[in-house]
């Protein structure tokens, strides 16, 4: 589903964020991306979300060669990727419902379908009763779940998360990870960048470990 072949990412100031990276994630797989700060985790996710482009090498996602994708097709490509961020990236002047509905509104879904799918997504993350609230009225964990609902509402085949539990306490973090597992169980490919090693070592998923922009090791299922 996601395949990196000899990928380099160099920024203009000669700083090399990724060097000769190759790895593959299977369709329907769930995996963690770990490594020290500055190891290149965020850069790697940005390459998958086409926020950045690789300087060299090939990135294939869902059978699309991202190095060749023209800019005008980027929005349509991004609709196949659910993105979850550490700082949620919610729109603070819109209700929870409107935030989750955003990808569907963009895709031009009709009104009734939007209502149905948004409520299904909010139900999944346990926030159905908060749909009329503004994000500011929610706790950090709840805001993160709104972010997750928004990422999955249009049923993307790939779900990416960048430090989704970075600001949460261990119990909430476990809930969030459990939520990701549930999406994985219905066939979504899930790739989560995290440094919450204590949490993920209890979970039976592969780890892609980066060190200074290179692949340091890949663990098999750790349990």
């Amino acid at each position: 589903m996601i395949k990196f072949t000899d990928v380099y990412k160099r920024y203009t100031n000669q700083y090399e964020a990724l060097s000769g990276l190759s790895f593959e994630l299977m369709d329907g797989e769930m995996a963690f991306l770990t490594g020290h700060s500055g190891a290149g985790k965020s850069t790697l996710l940005k390459l998958i979300a086409l926020i950045e482009r690789a300087s060299h090498g090939q990135v294939l996602v869902n059978n699309q060669n991202l190095t060749r994708l023209p800019p005008r097709k980027i929005p349509y490509y991004r609709r196949q990727i659910g993105l979850v961020f550490q700082d949620h990236n919610l729109l603070h002047d819109r209700t929870v419902f409107d935030n989750v509905a955003l990808p569907l509104v963009i895709a031009g879904e009709n009104h009734r379908e939007i209502g149905r799918r948004v409520r299904a997504a909010l139900d999944k993350v346990g926030l159905l009763n908060k749909e009329r609230n503004l994000p500011i009225a929610l706790s950090g964990g709840e805001q993160q779940r709104v972010g997750i609902a928004r990422a999955v509402v249009n049923r993307p085949p790939v779900l990416l998360a960048d430090e989704p539990t970075g600001n949460l306490d261990p119990d909430l973090s476990r809930d969030i990870m459990h939520l990701f597992e549930q999406f994985n169980q219905v066939g979504v490919t899930v790739f989560i960048a995290t440094h919450d090693l204590d949490l993920i070592k209890t979970m039976p998923y592969r780890q892609v470990i980066l060190h200074k922009g290179r692949l340091s090791q890949q663990t098999e299922h750790s349990i």
């Binding site: 979300a49 926020i51 929005p75 349509y76 490509y77 991004r78 609709r79 993105l83 990236n89 919610l90 729109l91 955003l102 990808p103 963009i106 895709a107 928004r150």
Partner: peptide, 16 residues
């Protein structure tokens, strides 16, 4: 700006 960034991240076209 931040709203535009979010919309771009979830697949909003320039037209939108």
């Amino acid at each position: 700006q931040s709203e535009i960034r979010v919309i771009k991240l979830v697949g909003g076209t320039n037209t939108f």
